[in-house]
Each structure stands twice: as C-alpha cells, then as structure tokens.
Amino acid sequence: MIQILFFLSSGLFLGWSLGANDAANIFGTAVGTKMISFKNAAIICSVFLIIGAVISGAGASHTLGKLGAIDTLAGAFIVALAAAITVLWMTKAGLPVSTSQAVVGAIIGWNFFAKTATGYGSLTKIVGTWVFSPIIAAALAFVLFHLVKRFVENSKIHLLRLDSMTRIALLIVGAFGSYSLGANNIGNVMGVFIKSSPFQNIVISDLIHISSIQQLFFLGGIAIAIGVFTYSKKVMMTVGSGIFKLSPIAAFVVVLASSIVLFLFASQGLKHLLTSYGLPSFPLVPVSSSQAVVGSVMGISLAKGGRNMNFRILGRISIGWVATPIASAIISYIALFFMQNVFMQDTFIR
C-alpha cells in the first residue's frame, strides 16, 4: 500500500498543481471580482470536478493511453513527476504552461526510453487539438458575447437584477466548467497510471459498478480538489484583479466558451451522439484550460472591435506548444534512466 501511494504521489502532486492553477480559469474572475465567495467557488468546483473526472474522464485518458501505454507503476511515477517538474519549472519561469503538454512530452520521453513506438496518429490528433482549442474557444466567445450583449441590452433588466442573475449564471457555468475540467484533464493527472492501476473493480450490486479506473480518477479528483482548497485562492485573486480586466458578464462568456471547449474534447456521450448521426465528432483529448481561456478572452476582444489584442500572448502560447513537451520529454527520459539504472526499478515491461 505504501509503495502504491508512493508511486501515485507524483500523479497526485500533478493533480494538486492542476487544482491550484486551473480552478482559477473557471472561478478566477468571479472570485477575484467578489461576485462569488471563494468558499462557495471551491466547494462547487471540487464537487463537480470529481464528478466530471469519475463519470466522464475515460475518453480523453484513452487517447493518452494510445500515445504511449506506460505499463509499470515506477514508469508512470516518473512520467507524472517529469510533467509536474516541467509545470513547476515553466510556471516559475513565468511561461504559460499546460499540464496536457507536459504530460504528452513526458509520455513521449517514456516511449523513447522504453523504445516503444509513439502513436503518431494520437500525437497528431493531440497536437492538432492544442492548436484548435483556443481558436474554437475564441469563435465561441465571439458568438456568445454578441448573443449575451444583445440579450442584456434588449431585456432592460435593472442593474441589480442583472447582478444577481450574473452571480447565478457564474455559479452554474462554473459548475459546468468544473465538470468539464475534471472530465477533460483527469487523464493528465491519472491517465499514465491506468495500465498499471493497483485498484480492483468494485461491484456492490447490479447497478453499482466502480471500475479501477474510476477509483483512480476519484483519487486524482480529490488531489485536484485539495489543490483548489489549499492554493487556488491566490491564483484566483491574481486572475480576477490583475491579468484580465473583465466585467462579470464578459467573465461569464469566457468561462462558458472555455467550458464548452473542454466538454467538446471530453464528452464520450457527445461523441457517440455525433457519430450515430454520421457527423464528424471531436477527438477526446486533454486540452489546456488556460489556453481555452486565453482564446475566449481573445474572442471577446475581437467582438469588441479587436482593440487591446495582445498578440504577444499568442506568441507565448505557440512557444509553449513546442517548449513544454520537449522540456518534459527530456526530463522524463533522464529521470527514467536514473529510476531504471540507479534505483533498479522497472520503468517498463521488457
């Protein structure tokens, strides 16, 4: 048990850092502008994040599994640790970093080390999604902004009533965003442990089946929730009062657009629905919530006539797409080498 917990700890740490950073993408503006109290935001965020992770987390995790099937706990530990170190390092360096990109890089590092072929189909799918997710978020935010603006202007709602409606809307959309974040990003945290999951399926009755993966995701969800409660307040205050100066209604649009993007790339139900009608479906891939938010803010900026567009942010995101996976892959490769040859742990099955 101690050994299992030790090996899972890097994933749990990654989960903690995801909760600390990414919850701010969902509730940052609402909490920072004091529309919602931090306590309410943290409770709603944690509950829906865990629900999203357990119920709908399998889809995006599956794609990561196809990229590289890490088959030992020690290997998974190093991959998650390499990703966590990269995230920490890049955050310290002030570069926009995505957990998804760090994990993908670390998995590729493992593939190189274990001399396993990287699933290039999955890799192209993942990288393509990274590029498209902020673009889709921007387009959605653009359209939603116009719709919401038209509604607010035509409905002649009193400022105070609009305020209470916005609070409720921010709570609802925050819950949806948390669910989508859990569903989409749990793969980053726990995906690498799926193959080597130490848990057994639990069957309580005919109706209640809890798979080993769901138990793993539940544990990851709790780690994320701890991250939300312990560290996200600081990040939320920064987001709400510093980086993006958004009105509460614009914040609602940003969170809704970003949440829809996370949902589109995580929902198996939606994928099945679209496929059943013969329509093209979205690949289930972990995407960066931060980049979806940046995309949405850009969309709003465009809707307002393209003023205050910060193209440097776009440049920094593009650098992140390349720099994060490479750094993570290198760290992963080196760490795997040490684990295998110094600590004599099998990082892959020969």
Partner: peptide, 11 residues
C-alpha cells in the same frame, strides 16, 4: 448584501 461589487462605487 455585497451586491454589484463591480459598479458599487459608481452607483
């Protein structure tokens, strides 16, 4: 009541 935090000062 902590209402309209955004435009409270203006109101």
């Amino acid at each position: 009541y902590m209402l309209i935090p955004d435009s409270r000062g203006d109101v």
